[in-house]
Design a protein around this nucleic acid. Structure first.
Length: 289
DNA sequence: AATTAGAGCAACCGCGGGGCG
DNA sequence: GCGCCCCGCGGTTGCTCTAAT
């Protein structure tokens, strides 16, 4: 296994240029995404297939929303992370318009710190309870139990998300079908993506007259932030998600029936944050000990 | 104004899984 | 069953920007 031969030598690395982006996008518009190994040779790009795929999925793919994570998205990520662990691709599938890389970066740069801070303050108040709530608070379950729990939680999460999205006016897309949906229906917005890209590039061109060191990455930042503004104006996840997502019947209950499976609920600090409890009773944490 | 430290994010690296001959 | 190849994922790196000193 290991690295692909194409990644070893003779390939360009580092930030992508607009010209490269255009080549890649126009190729994908003609042939569709996939068959990445042929992309570098067909397009003449001096990039490895991996790099092309990554660039497409994380940046050029239409329908990507960048920056400005909403409160609802934030909470969804935190909760899904608690359920699924660091399965960023799976988590991202519940967040239409977000890439796994974006979610992962956001978690590592923002949410982790935020939660650690929260843990710290609550630790000061609550004392010993935080021992059980270490970084990834997976309960000590057997593999079978854990898998059943994950499946049940996924089901619950999907249902809750569907419900939440159904409350919105905008057309709903099942998270699990997003990949195929975007692959077909969203090609039309590719032109928009590229024009945004070029706008940013042109801006940068004028700026680069002043600052010689600026590269393409900064220009895409400019275009992406405008893209984010556009995306944000389209409307974010419904505030209703706040209460519908993963809502538990009662905080005092430590078991939740899911069909014939009894699923222990982890009454965690995360949940306290998710449900915006102003003050979490220390006694609640002790339930899980 | 110059320097430094920290934050944010795009891209890379390495590994594992699945398909196919 | 085995090995090869391609794809996708998660962890990590390194560059750029910004705030603080």
């Amino acid at each position: 296994m290991g690295r692909l031969p194409c990644c070893d030598k003779g390939v360009k690395k580092g930030p992508w240029t607009p010209e490269e982006d255009l080549l890649l996008v126009s190729y994908i518009q003609q042939h569709g995404p996939g068959n990445w190994k042929t992309v570098p040779t067909s397009t003449g790009l001096l990039r490895c297939s991996k790099s092309c795929r990554l660039r497409w999925t994380n940046y050029l793919r239409p329908g990507i929303k960048r920056g400005n994570f909403t409160d609802q998205e934030e909470k969804l990520i935190v909760h899904l992370q608690e359920i699924l662990g660091n399965r960023w691709a799976t988590i991202a599938s519940y967040l239409p318009e977000r890439t796994d890389n974006d979610v992962k970066n956001y978690w590592n740069t923002h949410l982790k710190k935020k939660l650690m801070k929260k843990l710290q303050t609550l630790n000061q108040e609550g004392g010993a309870v935080t021992a059980a709530l270490s970084s990834t608070s997976q309960p000590a379950l057997s593999k079978g139990q854990w898998e059943r729990r994950v499946q049940a939680d996924i089901h619950m999460a999907k249902r809750a998300l569907d419900e939440a999205l159904a409350l919105q006016d905008k057309p709903t897309v099942s998270p699990m079908t997003m990949t195929t949906a975007t692959a077909t229906a969203t090609y039309a917005s590719n032109a928009e993506n590229i024009s945004r890209l070029l706008q940013g590039w042109m801006k940068n061109k004028s700026n680069s007259a002043k600052t010689t060191g600026s590269n393409y990455s900064t220009s895409t930042d400019a275009s992406s932030s405008s893209a984010a503004t556009v995306a944000a104006s389209k409307g974010d996840l419904s505030p209703a998600m706040d209460c519908s997502l993963f809502k538990l019947d009662s905080p005092e209950t430590d078991q939740l029936n899911h069909g014939d499976i009894k699923i222990p609920i982890l009454t965690s600090l995360f949940e306290s944050w998710l449900f915006e409890e102003q003050s979490m009773e220390v006694g609640q944490f002790e339930l899980i000990l």
